[in-house]
Nucleic acid binder design. Structure first.
Length: 503
RNA sequence: GGGCCGCUAGCUCAGUUGGCAGAGCACUGGACUUUUAAUCCAGGUGUGCCGGGUUCGAGCCCCGGGCGGCUCACCA
């Protein structure tokens, strides 16, 4: 922990030299009746618009256009009676030119005492310097907000990852790529919504607080509702509520929102993460594979200009069609021998042990085969791959496979060794769903904290009749990681979870 | 949770065998009216993550703790 971090951030004592200097300046401003925290500023132009409008201005040429810009002061280059400054607004940077000639001596002196980090507004004519830099010739300016803390230095910026995540506001100021990644995230979510809206899906909002955390295998966060005197769980997935929407007749629904899972934190896991789930009546998982291929490849092409992107130094090719394999074939191939449900449980257990998998006693054939897949195949899958037909044992909400009672009509999209999407032909038979829940309940009794719990209302809903439906979930953060070439999920989440900071 | 690594000035980082705690940027003072990592002259940066221990002497060695990164396990 840095010494400075332990200070009360609002305290007046024990400030470092730079912070003391700024507080002294603040007092001097007040003595001169200068309000250091302005009420408002009438900005006329966003910096990006000025750059576009005056891109053809000649070097040394001055326009007759007078602008008012505002932003944070990021650099000051003092040259005696004339100075340059850079300010940053939400759209970009622009240079200011301030001189004693233009401002008069008193205002010019004030300008030179501004600190890097201060917010200012400035008005004047747009011109281009002899060096070709678009610049505002400041005729008047106003301090909008005084900064009491110094910013990190200009070349190296802020590197310390802990400070970058804890004080993302500073990261956003000094590291332009943070803003760029955020904008790719914004554009990705917008593109997903736009694509689904155009296909006639309706976006719905389903409960974050749930009595029974369902729709996935994961440990939930627990909270408590005072008036109802009951425990509630932060949702681990919206799945069961979105299916209720399908039962209600909505036909094509989706939700993009947060899920919460009370599990480990790592470079690909944050306790809260953003998930897209959609449900589509009358289609099966084969339709969904085509749809996902088309949706993702077109969004990636729109956003990145190509369906081939680079991730962590390697190419990722999203050009359809993607490789499709069945889980059983993939495992068989990796093992160099045919495996399947016809084998005895003991034999599968032996193969798992030979491959360094720590077995648990209640695991059946399906779970063991899935573990083998994750260990032997998934960690080697780099290019987008659709893995089909997961065992029923690990898929309590998916429809039984039309050709094999041990399997379900489920696929996952694996890219760069990680699961990006998970989808299936939904199980719509209420009686079969009931018995699947009961099997899960038995696992729960046996100590599996991630086993699915029986959701009686969901079974009741199914009994009213659910049309054949395909459903898909997509990890938005992980998709954005791929699109921004980010190694860690923390790079694509503005405020990732860290251990509490000790002040 | 396990293993490995890191924590020194506001920021980015050096620091020899255990022997006066440093550099660049930032900051302060001075010069400078077209710079953009501005330049030139001068100057001060400090709870060495915290707490113990060893030692004449600890940023450095030992023990305990904190936070972070990577990685393994778990998971999406």
């Amino acid at each position: 922990m840095k010494g400075e971090e332990r200070l009360d951030p609002c305290g007046e004592e024990d400030l470092n030299e730079l912070m003391r200097q700024r507080r002294v300046k603040l007092e001097k401003l007040k003595e001169r009746n200068i309000q250091p925290y302005a009420l408002k500023f009438n900005r006329t132009d966003l910096i990006v618009n000025l750059r576009q409008r005056f891109q053809n201005l000649q070097q040394g040429e001055e326009s007759d256009y007078s602008t008012s810009v505002a932003g944070r002061l990021l650099a000051l280059r003092l040259h005696g009676k004339a100075s340059f400054a850079d300010i940053l607004d939400s759209s970009g940077k622009i240079q200011l030119f301030a001189s004693a000639d233009q401002l008069g001596l008193e205002d010019y002196e004030f300008f030179t005492t501004l600190d890097i980090g201060d917010w200012i507004g400035a008005s004047g004519k747009i011109f281009k310097t002899r060096r070709g830099e678009l610049t505002v010739k400041v005729e008047s300016f106003q301090l909008l907000s005084k900064a009491l803390r110094p910013l990190p230095e200009k070349w190296h910026g802020l590197r310390d990852v802990e400070t970058r995540y804890r004080q993302r506001y500073v990261d956003l100021i000094v590291n332009p790529e943070v803003r760029e990644k955020l904008m790719i995230r914004v554009d990705t979510i917008h593109a997903l919504r736009d694509y689904l809206d155009r296909q006639g899906f309706v976006e719905v909002e389903t409960p974050m607080l749930q009595l029974i955390p369902g729709g996935a295998t994961a440990r939930p966060f627990v909270t408590y509702h005072n008036a109802l005197d009951t425990n509630l769980y932060l949702r681990i997935a919206p799945e069961l509520f979105l299916k209720r929407c399908i039962i209600g007749g909505l036909e094509k629904v989706y939700e993009i929102n947060r899920n919460f899972r009370n599990e480990g934190v790592s470079y690909k896991h944050n306790p809260e993460f953003t998930m897209l789930e959609f449900y589509w009546a009358y289609v099966d998982y084969l339709d969904l594979m085509d749809f996902l291929e088309e949706m993702l490849s077109s969004i990636i092409a729109d956003l990145r200009g190509s369906t081939v992107i680079e991730y962590q130094g390697q190419k990722l090719d999203f050009t359809p069609p993607w490789k499709r394999i069945t889980l059983l074939n993939a495992v068989s191939q990796a093992l160099g021998r045919e495996i399947g449900f016809y084998m005895e449980l003991d034999e599968l257990r032996r193969i798992a042990e030979e491959n360094d998998i720590q077995l648990e006693k209640n695991w059946g054939k399906g779970k063991i085969i899935t573990e083998l897949f994750e260990r032997l195949v998934e960690m080697n899958l780099w290019q987008p791959t659709l893995v089909m037909d997961y065992p029923k044992e690990v898929s309590p909400l998916a429809r039984t496979h039309r050709n094999d009672p041990n399997l379900t009509e489920r696929f996952e999209l694996i890219v760069a060794n990680r699961e990006i999407a998970n989808a299936f032909s939904e199980l719509i038979d209420p009686l079969e769903q009931k018995s699947r829940f009961e099997q899960q309940a038995a696992q729960w009794e046996a100590g599996d904290e991630e086993a699915h719990r029986i959701d009686t209302d969901f079974l009741r809903a199914l009994e009213y009749g659910m049309p054949p439906t395909g459903g898909l979930g997509l990890g938005v953060d992980r998709l954005v990681m791929l699109l921004t070439d980010s190694h860690s999920i923390r790079e694509v989440i503005l405020f990732p979870h860290l251990r509490p900071e000790a002040f």
